[in-house]
Design a protein around this nucleic acid. Structure first.
Length: 102
DNA sequence: GTTGTGACTACCA
DNA sequence: ATGGTAGCCACAA
């Protein structure tokens, strides 16, 4: 009886990410209880309002990069937010071991 | 009820 | 190493 939409679960999972760490969509999906819905995580975050307090910028793809094309405003925003969190980008990729959240 | 799509992931050449 | 293809589940029209 999952009255709760996957959206709610995603929000919780993303909100549970500690500062200075990042996780992949697959991890979020798995933590949300939907191991195969990595894609939907992104769709959910996309549906989030601009005034959300959710740290969606801590969610990245399995390659350790931002899923947005470089040069895109969202890409820059996420990169800036991560930098403010203490996450350092080696060019466009993130150092491994950062996903060692759980 | 069917079809299409997606801020993904894993596998194969 | 890189690039392309297939699989995956949930939601919207």
């Amino acid at each position: 009886m999952d009255r709760l939409k996957i959206n709610e679960l995603i929000w919780q999972a993303v909100a549970s990410i500690p500062k200075g760490k990042v996780v992949t969509y697959g991890q979020i999906a798995k933590l949300s209880g939907y191991p195969g819905l990595a894609r939907y995580v992104g769709l959910t975050l996309k549906n989030l309002p601009s005034n959300t307090t959710l740290p969606w910028h801590r969610v990245i793809n399995a390659k350790g990069e931002i899923s947005f094309p470089q040069g895109s405003p969202e890409y820059k925003r996420q990169k800036a937010l991560l930098k403010a969190e203490g996450v350092i980008f080696n060019k466009a990729k993130l150092p491994a071991g950062i996903y060692d959240w759980l």
